[in-house]
């Protein structure tokens, strides 16, 4: 594979040719523990990047920090060249950086289609005064619904359209959350463990969706424990351990890296290495 990602050699914190996110000196302390301590990190634009590491490596905390859901002790980062450190989470989302959650946040007492519609941004009917006059937002609502139905079909949730999200299976909720995130056509989508709990029959199509996103020009960053998935779809892999970035590189290279294996072994003898081996 020709190198169109990295400037120079792949190393932890290395420069990218076309980064969409650039973060420096990001730290977050819990009690006396540094949960995140990232010196430098760049996410390549238009690629699928996997963020892996043992439990407690700080992956989700990093997600929370980058998307404004948590406040860092120190750190600066930019998205599409603009500084977004300290920007509230909803503003981050409006700029096109949309995330999903490890513990799925489907809105259970709302129907699937309502969940989807909520994902669309800049809706006129979401203003208080215009909400009272349906002629102001009926047309927009129809367009949003059309997009939503398209996405539901792609994620094979169209049969569940009118069901309450709470009645879906865990995997279906994951899919719904991802589909909902796509409603706003984000330039970067950040998926926190998208495969966890998803029915194996669905995984293949989910992988295709993610690849399809890349083809559509969306950058993908995801946290995952399933090494098979990581190897299969990612263009780039970033490894975290104990809050730090310990390795970076193309999937095949990184997974042979001794530092990576050590990082996993150091924290977990069992699960992660097992799936890694299975992946090979």
């Amino acid at each position: 594979m020709p190198n169109d990602i990295v400037v120079g050699k792949a190393a932890p914190g290395c420069k990218k040719i076309d980064p969409i996110v650039v973060a420096s000196n990001v730290t977050r302390q819990f009690g006396g523990n540094l949960a995140v301590n990232v010196e430098h990190l760049e996410i390549p634009r238009g690629k699928i990047t996997a963020l892996i590491g043992p439990n407690g490596a700080g992956k989700t905390t990093l997600f929370n920090l980058l998307t404004g859901f948590d406040k860092p002790n120190t750190g600066e980062w930019t998205f599409e060249g603009k500084n977004i450190a300290g920007v509230s989470s909803y503003k981050v989302a409006r700029r096109g950086m949309i995330r999903t959650f490890q513990l799925t946040k489907s809105l259970n007492a709302m129907t699937v289609i309502e969940n989807m519609r909520l994902g669309a941004q800049k809706q006129r009917g979401e203003g208080f005064f215009s909400s009272l006059f349906s002629f102001l937002w009926k047309g927009e609502e129809a367009r949003i619904t059309e997009t939503a139905d398209d996405l539901l079909k792609r994620f094979k949730l169209d049969a569940k359209r009118e069901d309450y999200a709470g009645s879906l299976s865990g995997g279906q909720r994951k899919l719904l959350e991802m589909a909902r995130a796509l409603m706003s056509k984000p330039s970067l989508i950040m998926l926190d463990e998208p495969m966890a709990g998803v029915n194996p029959a669905l995984t293949q199509s989910l992988l295709e969706h993610i690849k399809g996103l890349k083809a559509g020009g969306t950058t993908v960053l995801f946290v995952e424990h399933d090494m098979h998935m990581v190897r299969h779809i990612s263009d780039w892999v970033i490894v975290m351990a104990e809050g730090k970035v310990v390795a970076e590189g193309e999937p095949n290279v990184v997974m042979k890296d001794q530092a990576v294996i050590d990082a996993y072994l150091g924290a977990h003898h069992d699960t992660d290495l097992g799936t890694m081996k299975k992946g090979k």
Partner: peptide
């Protein structure tokens, strides 16, 4: 978190 309470880890 109160005068003596500890800050909770979120998320």
């Amino acid at each position: 978190q109160g005068v003596l309470g500890k800050k909770q880890r979120i998320g």
